[in-house]
Write a protein that binds this DNA or RNA. Structure first.
Lengths: 340, 340
DNA sequence: GCCTGTTGTGGAACCGGTTCCACTACTGAC
DNA sequence: GTCAGTAGTGGAACCGGTTCCACAACAGGC
């Protein structure tokens, strides 16, 4: 395995000059630069990022913490982050954070802190206060996506407003019997998105003067979860709503599949609106609010790069809100009998 | 940021002893070990993995190359790999390999080679010969999952046999008008899985004496792809098959959704079998062959660890085949009219 | 009592780069 | 002609650990 000393020897210059020539820093004559570059490619030289990181203190590596990999939102987000990081010349080290306390502690204490990452992007993970301070104490940028944790830069949609908007869409169509199919506030890693979307839903109900009792049904944030929750909810025709606001498109899709299976027509018998902008929304004709997670991922990387460039002195508690796009499709319409 | 020298000073020992005490290598008395451990936790010391890697030559980091993140198979696989690597004390650096030649070259030349990873796991990426040799020339273990590339250790199911098995299941039920909905052999990053599953399908047809003409329909490897391909295929009732072997569960699910939408009953009017063992297979009653990608991911890590333990001298061209499990559900039955 | 082997510790070299500093050569301004 | 400033280069220190080697102390075998 050849090192920079070999390159220097072959080019007939010192290690210092070889280093400058290859990294582009400092004064090097055009001739020498070419000489060194040629020598390097001759022996297939590549820098040891370890040695380089050791002295510069930069690892050119960003840690990304994610709770799930097999859900649309997270996969898209990760893809956006990965693409942007590669473009910026950074590596991506992936950690999946479960709710296993021991594994979680291990990831934090053992991995993230080991001076191996320049920054951390946490996707939809509710970090504990001690976890945040631990990370911040290293002086490394910490950007959260999808959660408004205190004391760190965050990037997300306005969940309350989005939920309210979706609900208002249903109400404006004439619906009065609404249900929100969403994550249980105290389950699923106590992630605050659940309660925010519920809050936005309740806000809209309240403003329309609709009583909130019996309007919430818990569901796991997956297609299968939405399907099972829908089967439970739709079997009794007397309590069946005319419209459902699903907390995610995956829930909404599961609901639509269940409804079709039960012979309930969407949208004639049941209007459905979701949040996400899932790839499959079009296929199911799902009206939704697109939140472009891929784009959010790129944006999160931008924020990281800004903080990295600003150096350790800068203020780091921005809170960026990204807009959602309303994408009306065929899954929502006025309730039966409300039309003349 | 405190270093091992600070720990040594605080504990009143030399750097060498502090290093031995913390790493557990070499002779250290019980007393000294405790002393050092205490000093380290006192000042919140964590090793610099850069410095450590620099001298040991080990990065405790594995590069994982994946073509997609938002497809079930890859997400599951990645999850299995991630879990196993964390357990083994390794980091996971993620690279998504698109078919953009430039980005691909960049990932290989610039990232993977930079002495930053101890090994590489390539998931379903058809590596070019030069890419394989480039990687192998570094003396690092290279394990491929889902593809039988030459000159490297690979892990996968027997695609030909699995496809044949699925098709035979349909034939044994009495079906004679079969279609294979699968990836186009010359598309989608020319991944060899496509042609293998097609080959297995054709083998089964041939053994049953069924002519193969008009039995293949190309489809993208997604739910949406299966849906669109199904709409094309199912609209003409005269050419409509009585059974479909889909190359993946996602294709199969898209097909089932399309069929339901067109009023074609599954399985009465159309039997469907897939390959994968997708989370949603149960929800759609899909008969399939489970290939447990999560388990495959763990296995791939095991192989990497074995090669890492064996050292650079060992032979590295094993080819491990993992079994599939037949999971019969309600999407397959005998064709209408074939029963008495 | 001597020799060998094991345990325990410290000094110093080393991993492979980057960067500070010293030094030379040359240019242009006064 | 002198002086300041810039371009270009090399020597050596340094990043933060690990490990080789030397050395001391002490055990047990003969």
């Amino acid at each position: 395995m050849s090192g920079i000393a070999d390159v220097a020897r072959l080019a007939g210059v010192s290690k210092a000059t070889a280093s400058r020539a290859l990294s582009g820093r400092g004064y090097v004559s055009e001739t020498t630069r070419n000489l060194v570059a040629h020598a390097a490619s001759e022996i297939g030289y590549v820098v040891s990022s370890n040695a380089s990181s050791l002295v510069t203190g930069q690892t050119k590596n960003v840690g990304v913490v994610v709770p799930y990999l097999n859900r649309w939102f997270f996969a898209e987000m990760l893809e956006g982050i990965e693409t942007a990081l590669i473009e910026a010349g950074y590596d991506l080290t992936l950690y999946r954070l479960t709710d296993d306390v021991e594994q979680r502690r291990k990831v934090f204490e053992y991995f993230l802190v080991r001076k191996r990452v320049d920054a951390v992007i946490a996707v939809s993970v509710a970090l504990s206060e001690s976890e945040v301070t631990r990370l911040k104490s290293l002086g490394k940028p910490l950007v959260g996506v999808g959660g408004h944790a205190e004391g760190m830069t965050t990037l997300s949609i306005d969940d309350v407003a989005a939920a309210k908007l979706a609900t208002e869409h249903l109400i404006s169509l004439g619906h009065r019997r609404l249900v929100h199919l969403g994550g249980h506030p105290e389950e699923e890693m106590d992630f605050p998105v659940h309660e925010r979307r519920l809050a936005g839903f309740r806000d809209a109900l309240e403003e329309a003067g609709i009583p909130p009792t019996g309007t919430f049904q818990p569901s796991s944030f997956t297609i299968d979860g939405g399907y099972r929750a829908a089967l439970r909810m739709l079997t009794d025709p007397r309590t069946r709503p005319t419209a459902v606001f699903a907390a995610s498109d995956e829930i909404a899709i599961g609901l639509i599949v269940a409804a079709r299976q039960l012979g309930i027509r969407v949208p004639q018998d049941l209007s459905v609106v979701g949040i996400d902008g899932h790839d499959l929304a079009d296929m199911f004709g799902l009206t939704t609010l697109e939140q472009h997670p891929k784009r959010q991922g790129r944006l999160a990387v931008d924020l990281v790069m800004e903080e990295l460039a600003a150096g350790p002195g800068a203020a780091r508690n921005r809170s960026v809100t990204v807009p959602v796009d309303f994408a009306p499709r065929s899954s929502t319409t006025a309730p039966q009998g409300a039309r003349p």
